[in-house]
Design a binder for these strands. Sequence first.
DNA 1: CGCCCCATGTAAGACGTTACATGATTGA
DNA 2: TCAATCATGTAACGTCTTACATGGGGCG
Lengths: 185, 185
Amino acid sequence: MTESTISNLGCALLGLLQQNPSSGYDLRKIFSSTAMTSYSDSPGAIYPALKRLQQQGLIRGSVESGSGMRRRQVFRLTARGTAELKKWIARPLARADVIRGLDGVMLRFAFSEPVGGPSVSIRLLRSLETELTSYIPDLHEQLSAGKASMPMSGRLALESGIKSYECLLQWTRDALRTYEPKRKD
Amino acid sequence: MTESTISNLGCALLGLLQQNPSSGYDLRKIFSSTAMTSYSDSPGAIYPALKRLQQQGLIRGSVESGSGMRRRQVFRLTARGTAELKKWIARPLARADVIRGLDGVMLRFAFSEPVGGPSVSIRLLRSLETELTSYIPDLHEQLSAGKASMPMSGRLALESGIKSYECLLQWTRDALRTYEPKRKD
DNA sequence: CGCCCCATGTAAGACGTTACATGATTGA
DNA sequence: TCAATCATGTAACGTCTTACATGGGGCG
């Protein structure tokens, strides 16, 4: 029933709607004009996604049509939508999330504070720190294992991936310090 | 005709096959066991992708079935496949590639040297440097513009994105120095 | 003999992309 | 009035996910 998995785009929509009730067009503008450009602003993605969310009972749209106004439909989260959003954000992290779903993780974190408060943000950061700490050494091993047999560009590409994870780990710790200034490191 | 766009997975397959003729199963193992885990190792993705590449005439499979061996089909690049791979790698970079297709860019770079030699790698790195140099300031502007209205976790998430691009730019310059030791910086 | 791994595939479904289509309203 | 923008959608298409299916070969 509530077993539906929601796509990243769907969750991004939920998160944005939680902050401000918006129309599909508003959301498209957000995706096309802000740093959330990594999500599609095409109508063929957004309107069907909104329809799905509404069919699942997670959002509800109401048509606004005052005189001298263009017809537009403003969507808001339902109680179930809020619950689903919270559940999505609080879902435990696994290594797979770090490897293939980093975008989703950052999206969850971005919404974590307004939706669940600082404690949820901190929990996310902590498990991200854990996963990265265990994953990065694996990557180093692969690098030294394959060093000889890889072309230089391949090796460099792998190093780039490693560096970016290390940079993310750094950021994670900085962010944790922002939330817990008294944390001893 | 050769107008077909090939998916990232398809290009990854082409690149790997260029280095070693392999069966679908071999390729799956690579995806599941190395840092290329970001690509799917599921048979439902790989076998259809191989079939498409073959239908496009970019690879050719030959069934190996010596006695006492399991049947397996080994794929090799055709001339057109090599050409297509080269074209894909040499395609000029645009900002969109940096925003939504970084994976693809790194994949192209990883194969650039064995396929096109150092000059192609260098060209890729240079245009990556250009794109990043122009994109990063935009992100900083967005950050300072939205600073007030964003929840802290949102701001931190944006900062994480910025940091990761800055880290990538750093890597790009390091890599360039690897290829051009005498470059003055 | 039975189980697990090799090796290949197919089918249903979900999602995003691209491109097209439609109307209403604002502004030059 | 004519173009641009607002605002919403639909249709076709390709691809990935998940799950299932199949058969041969090694191993205990």
